[in-house]
Simulated assay, not measured.
Amino acid sequence: MERHSIVPRPGWQRTVEEQGLIYPLTRHPDGSLRPYWDESAYYAFTLDEVEALEEVVEELHRMCLAAADHIVTAGRFADLGITDPRVAEAVAESWHRRAELPSVYGRFDLRHDGTGPAKLLEYNADTPTSLVEAASAQWFWMEDRFPGADQWNSLHERLVAAWKKQAPLLPPGAPLYFAHSSADELGEDLMTVAYLKETAEQAGLDTDWISMEEIGWDTLSGRFVDNNLRFIRGIFKLYPWEWLTTDGFAGHVLDTLDNGGGTGSTLWIEPAWKMLLSNKALLAVLWELYPGHPNLLPAYLDGPRELTATTGYVAKPLLGREGEGVTIHEPGTAPVPREDPCCYQQLAPLPAFAGNHTVLGAWVVDGEPAGLGIRESSGLITDEYARFVPHAILGTI
């Protein structure tokens, strides 16, 4: 794993925008616009490195499913902040019926420097983004810059195959809606949903658009409807379950939830059991079940324990994205009380390549490793100002 500088392609911004990456720049607090898509560098891997990372992702995904089963079997929903009995019941039923429910994709965030074992930082299995740049933009970049090279990137074909495989689980005779929140100002959620919709269409599915804010409720039929009052029987949403189960329509969502077997009127993708994997409490449960595992970092829910004096720790809100609410505590510093429920994970600073702190985003589609996206940040927390940097497998260049 090596980072190399390279001259960006002429007209790169227009090129990636035409490929669906309509958010190639990020506005920083000082008002400046700087590249989010950063092709002034790339990461090179050997095929052996990629194959080893694929094995890690397979193992982590298997362990996460075992942890989810443990949470449900032991009834540990409160550890995840799920205190509403109806929500806990819906998640448990979703888990038990998971074979009947479509589940498409997720993204592991890993700490890896190319030398030691990769370490799990978190698993976003409900609403992961950075998909367009990982699946599309970096593939076309590689074809332009290194014709004939390879990349850890089978995202597109695996997504199409996943939709084909899971099509029989979808409600028959109705379109599959694709929804994002209209509050998305950058267009990242919009284009992620648009790309997933495209892969579903290539799989032969009938699809339609709707925003979360446009979803209506028909009081006469007791069902969700679109702008034309058509029943919404199946919908992919880039909208977190923790919002879906707490906003104004939460009661209707739970009342009409199709958790397999035709028990409800609306099938949501990703399914409710993904709440078990996208919660940072999962990290602590994993450490309980697999203490000392080489691909895990020590993590706890009741406080940082020995991490305060030894390695230091990172406090992560159970529900949060793009580094929001994450705090770093160096070894020997006094613990800082948190009012919000947190997971306390061992501090493992992101490796620095030419001063850039790097995190690997390893994608899973239909339960299988599918690709890699790399983000860099100026600090140790990967936040909304991080940059996406493409990669290639060096042995094929």
Score class of each variant (00 low, 15 high):
3 R>M: 15
5 S>P: 09
6 I>A: 10
9 R>F: 12
21 L>D: 00
22 I>W: 05
29 P>A: 11
30 D>G: 02
31 G>Y: 01
37 W>P: 00
39 E>D: 15
43 Y>N: 02
48 D>Q: 02
51 E>C: 01
58 E>Y: 04
60 L>V: 01
61 H>D: 09
65 L>S: 09
70 H>G: 10
70 H>S: 08
71 I>Y: 11
73 T>W: 15
75 G>S: 04
75 G>R: 06
75 G>H: 07
76 R>H: 14
81 G>I: 15
81 G>D: 01
82 I>F: 14
87 V>K: 06
93 E>R: 11
95 W>D: 06
97 R>K: 10
101 L>G: 03
105 Y>E: 06
105 Y>R: 04
107 R>F: 07
107 R>P: 03
108 F>A: 08
111 R>I: 13
113 D>V: 02
114 G>M: 00
115 T>M: 06
122 E>W: 02
126 D>G: 13
127 T>N: 06
131 L>W: 02
133 E>F: 14
136 S>I: 12
140 F>E: 09
141 W>R: 01
147 P>R: 04
150 D>Q: 12
150 D>T: 10
152 W>D: 00
153 N>C: 14
158 R>K: 15
165 K>Q: 14
171 P>F: 13
174 A>M: 04
176 L>V: 10
184 D>L: 06
191 M>S: 10
194 A>Q: 12
199 T>S: 11
201 E>T: 08
202 Q>M: 12
209 W>S: 10
226 D>A: 09
229 L>E: 07
230 R>V: 08
235 I>Y: 02
239 Y>S: 09
243 W>A: 07
248 G>H: 13
251 G>P: 01
252 H>N: 11
258 D>V: 02
264 G>E: 00
270 E>Q: 12
271 P>M: 04
275 M>F: 09
275 M>D: 09
281 A>V: 07
283 L>T: 01
286 L>H: 10
294 P>S: 05
294 P>G: 05
295 N>V: 02
295 N>D: 11
297 L>I: 05
306 E>V: 02
310 T>D: 12
315 A>M: 08
317 P>S: 14
318 L>I: 09
319 L>D: 09
320 G>T: 04
323 G>R: 08
333 T>V: 11
344 Y>D: 06
345 Q>Y: 06
346 Q>E: 12
350 L>R: 08
354 A>N: 15
362 A>E: 01
364 V>S: 13
367 G>P: 07
369 P>Y: 06
377 S>Q: 12
377 S>I: 09
380 L>I: 10
387 R>I: 03
388 F>L: 03
394 L>S: 05
397 I>V: 06
